[in-house]
Computed example of a mutant assay.
Amino acid sequence: MRSVPRWALLSSVTAPVVLIGGWMIAALLEGPAYDPATQTISTLAANGAAGSWVMTAALAVLGVCHMVTALGLRPAALPGRVALGAGGAAAFVVALVPPPNSGGSLRHGSAAAVGFALLAVWPVLAADRRGTAPWGLRPVPSLTATTLMLVSAIWFMIELRFDGAAGAAERLVTALQSLWPFAVVASCLRHPGRPEGPLP
C-alpha cells in the first residue's frame, strides 16, 4: 500500500473549509438581498457582486486544493486521481471566468458543469477492488459517494430549471464534492495496512 503524505490531509481539509467559508462570507457581504436558498454560488462570484473577490478566491483555492490532494492520493486508482485533479483545474477555471452580474455565462457555466461531472465520478474511478483497500477507496463507499453527488447534481439542475431552491441544491452537491477527498485521505492515513514511519 503506497502511503499518503500528510500534506494531502492539509489540502483535503482546506478545500471544504475555504469553499463553505467563502460562500458564507460572500453572502454576508452581499447583504439581505441575496437569498442562499434560491440563488447560486455563481451569483456571489459575479462581476460587480460585493463579495465577488471572496468567492473568486475561494473557488481558486478550492481548485488548487483538489489538484494537490490528487497528487498525494497515491493509493487511489490513477483514473480517479486524474479526474480529481482535472475537477480541481475546472474549479480554478470557474474562478477565472466569473459570470456577468446581468446573468449567466456560457464559459462559466461550461467550466462549472465539467467540474461538477469530474468531481462526481472521481470516487468510483479511484476505487480499489482489493480487500485490503482503505475504506474510502473501497467500491461500495466510492459508488455511494458518486451516486449521492450525481443525485444532488440532478436535483440542482431541476431546481435551476424551475427557479426553485437552486442555491440549497448547489450547496449540497458542492459540499459533498469538497468533503469526500478529505474522507478518502483520512481513511488512507488511518488504514492499518499503510506503512509505518514518517511520511514525506
Rank of each mutant, 00 (worst) to 15 (best):
M1Q: 08
M1R: 07
S3Y: 09
S3A: 15
V4G: 09
W7Q: 10
A8V: 11
S11K: 05
T14S: 12
A15D: 07
G21V: 07
M24F: 15
A27I: 05
E30R: 14
D35M: 10
N47S: 14
A50G: 05
W53I: 11
M55R: 06
V61A: 12
V61T: 13
L62W: 14
T69R: 08
A70C: 07
L73G: 10
A83I: 06
A83S: 10
G85D: 01
G87W: 00
P98E: 05
S105H: 00
A111F: 01
A112R: 04
L119Q: 01
V121L: 09
V124E: 05
L125Y: 01
D128R: 01
T132W: 04
T132L: 03
P134Q: 14
W135M: 11
W135Y: 15
P141Q: 12
S142H: 07
T147S: 13
L148A: 10
V151S: 14
W155N: 05
F156I: 01
E159G: 03
L160Q: 00
R161F: 13
R171H: 13
V173H: 07
L176Q: 07
Q177R: 09
S178R: 02
L179D: 00
P181M: 12
A183Y: 15
V185N: 00
V185F: 06
S187L: 11
R194P: 06
G197F: 05
